[in-house]
Simulated assay, not measured.
Amino acid sequence: MPRGLSSSKFALLVIDMQNNFASVAKPILSEVNATIASARRASIPVIFTQHGHPDPENEEKTSVLVRWWGASGSIRKGSSDWKLLSGLDVASNETVLDEKTTYDAFHGTRLKSLLDERNVDTLIISGVMTQLCCETTARSAFVQNYNVIFLSDGTGPRCEATLKTIAFGFGHVLTCAEMREKLDKIAKD
């Protein structure tokens, strides 16, 4: 276990594994699903996010993210692109935060209250996009006093600059296999 995390209370966050991002989500899907299974065996909560906008055309006036990508480049909530990948292992009793509208999974969502209710102090980050939603959420978690574990092969696309930045000042970077080994050890204890 990385230093300072041996007695941590973990949660696994799976960010935006949606049809819109299938080209970068599918290559990491098996690693993410295997890590989800290990988290469940260790009784670690798994939380999913789903990014989308109810009305991108009108949100161009109020959302800098929609202005940046344009209404046509934004994910419409309820559309096929908005749906989670069909192969993603989401259990019916797990939380899906479908109110996410910006890169930071904490902003405007119930994420912090869910983590606090469960006394989580360490957030394991997986999903897409590494250099946008995953990195922004990792930084936000850190400044909100959560330990961060960032999965190098459980985030896509691979972005060496993000991995170096996270490792330098925001969290521990582990592979999914390394994380599963730690979670499997927790499950046995």
Rank of each mutant, 00 (worst) to 15 (best):
A167M: 12
P45N: 14
D184E: 10
Y146R: 00
W82Q: 04
T137I: 15
E60Y: 07
M129R: 10
A11Y: 10
S7W: 03
V24G: 11
M1L: 06
P2F: 15
D16Q: 04
T162M: 06
F150V: 12
E181Q: 04
G127T: 13
N58C: 07
L84Y: 10
L132C: 15
V173E: 05
V173K: 03
T109P: 02
T137D: 13
T136Y: 13
R180I: 11
K182Y: 13
S140Q: 10
M179G: 05
H51F: 07
F170A: 05
S126G: 09
Q131P: 05
L97W: 05
V64I: 07
A42W: 02
I44L: 10
K112I: 05
R41M: 06
T137H: 05
G171A: 10
E117Q: 12
T49R: 07
G4K: 14
L123I: 15
A187W: 02
K26F: 08
V46R: 04
M179V: 15
L132M: 14
K182V: 14
T109K: 11
P27Q: 03
E135I: 07
S80W: 10
T122F: 05
D81P: 03
V24P: 00
G171R: 03
P54G: 07
D153V: 04
T35A: 01
S63Y: 05
L111R: 02
N58A: 15
S23A: 14
G127S: 07
M1C: 08
Q50K: 13
L183M: 13
S72R: 09
V64S: 06
K9I: 06
S74H: 00
F10S: 08
K164W: 03
N147Y: 09
V14D: 00
V143W: 14
A138W: 00
R41L: 15
A167I: 12
L114Y: 12
S92R: 11
E99G: 12
T130P: 11
